[in-house]
């Protein structure tokens, strides 16, 4: 693993990601084949068993990922293409991490409050907007979503303490 620091541009090499993803896909394929085999991948008295079709699906996944893995191994030392640079990873995490926290927020305090907080904080911190504009956009999106889903289309979304306080 020492040589991947040698590449001129700092980042993760595509080949390494390729190998890792192919290995994960192989594991998934093996899991599918194993579980189908457990259920029975042959014939019962009334026809094909439950695992009949997915067993071969799992097998195909394993075969294809093995080939992709082998192709990756063959050009392991020659291919210096960079999958993502460090600064790109940072950019991606700037949205991915807050989004994950946001989903946790949806689960805990409901979708409307967390959406308003998420949008306002993201605009303030990542976009360097003034507090007033950030809060206005966040609250605006949340309130319009509330009107549209809870009142207009009557589709209930996850709610928390604040909505309960308001009587919803």
């Amino acid at each position: 693993m020492a040589h991947d620091h040698e590449s001129a541009q700092a980042g993760i090499r595509t080949v390494l990601v390729e190998l890792a993803v192919a290995a994960i896909i192989f594991a998934l394929g093996a899991l599918v084949a194993y579980d189908s085999y457990r259920l029975g991948s042959g014939w019962a008295s009334d026809g094909p068993q439950s695992g009949y079709f997915p067993f071969y699906i799992g097998l195909f996944i394993c075969i294809c990922s093995t080939v992709v893995l082998a192709q990756g191994l063959l050009r392991r030392n020659t291919d210096q293409q960079v999958f993502v640079t460090v600064s790109q990873v940072k950019q991606v995490l700037v949205i991915l991490l807050p989004s994950t926290v946001y989903v946790l927020g949806v689960q805990l305090i409901g979708i409307y409050v967390s959406s308003a907080l998420f949008i306002a904080l993201f605009m303030r911190i990542a976009g360097k907007y003034s507090w007033i504009r950030s809060v206005a956009v966040g609250a605006g999106v949340s309130v319009s979503a509330f009107v549209m889903f809870e009142i207009w289309f009557k589709i209930p979304l996850p709610k928390g303490p604040l909505e309960r306080l308001l009587g919803y």
């Binding site: 807050p98 946001y102 989903v103 949806v106 979708i111 949008i119 976009g127 589709i155 979304l157």
Partner: peptide, 17 residues
């Protein structure tokens, strides 16, 4: 920086419903 979080919110609503 405004569009991105709004789209994440819209996607989350869509996935939940």
């Amino acid at each position: 920086s405004i569009i991105a979080p709004v789209i994440v919110v819209i996607c989350a609503i869509g996935a939940f419903t």
